[in-house]
Simulated scan of single mutants.
Amino acid sequence: MTQIAQLTDYMQKALAKDNSGHSVDHIDRVVALADKILRNEPSADPFIVHAAALLHDVYDDKLFETESEALAAKENLIRFLQSLEISQNTIDRIIEIIDNMSWSKSLEGQAKPLDINGQIVQDADRLEAVGAIAVTRAITYGAVKNRILYDPNIAPRIAKNKAQYRNDDSTTINHFYEKLLLIKDRLNTETARQIAVSRHQFMLDFLEQFKAEWDLSK
């Protein structure tokens, strides 16, 4: 079994029970998007891109009850990578991408700059938050977190740090204005920017239709 196959198996076991929109099918799409971007970025390292794309949610703290559980998951992953005899330098580069690619970390200005490998993975993950599937993922995550779907009296807020971003005092529809509609202009690669155009428009059309239907009851 190749190293990528073993990493895939590790990811599938780690995320098998996820119901928040960060499940195995999400990872599969991120990997496919990363592959598409990778074709136009010859300077990137395919192994690092694939590994980081596969593993980027394995220890995401929003999928755990406590920070200590997320930290333990990260430590377990590092030990697993070492058991595959992947060089420490490569492991460090994979972990650095995962640790610095999130939207919430970039809000605080604490994220380290990503090299082309990290930019590809970040773009692939962010494209998953733009478009038709992004709509369903936002609604799914909102339901898991018991968020209000929509309340026209609650205005969207632009979070300035991770704590504000993770606060559930907003609504699922507001999340489009607080993050999803902002993604198109914050992508790294030309390939990702091209993919985002029609997906971004789909979300705008969805929101227009949603609000038109909502207003029928008013």
Rank of each mutant, 00 (worst) to 15 (best):
L182I: 10
K145M: 13
S87Y: 06
I116S: 02
L81F: 11
I91K: 15
G131S: 12
S106K: 13
G118Q: 06
I173Y: 10
G109R: 00
T90M: 05
S170K: 14
I78F: 04
N100W: 01
V135T: 13
Q122F: 11
S87P: 03
P156I: 09
L84Y: 08
P152Y: 12
G109S: 03
T140Y: 14
K184F: 02
K179W: 13
L181T: 05
N188C: 05
N167Q: 14
I158A: 08
N161R: 15
S83Y: 09
I78W: 01
I154L: 11
D115H: 11
T140M: 15
L81I: 10
V121G: 03
Q119G: 06
L180P: 03
T90D: 02
R137C: 01
S170L: 07
I148R: 15
Y150L: 07
T189F: 04
I133H: 15
Q119L: 03
K105G: 00
N167K: 15
L127H: 13
K184R: 12
R166Y: 09
K112H: 13
V130K: 14
N100S: 01
N89L: 06
D123L: 03
M101A: 03
L180W: 10
T140L: 15
T171P: 05
Y150A: 05
A138N: 15
Q122R: 15
N153H: 15
I91G: 08
I94R: 05
R147M: 12
K179H: 11
R166E: 03
Y177C: 13
I91P: 02
N161Y: 14
R93F: 03
R93P: 00
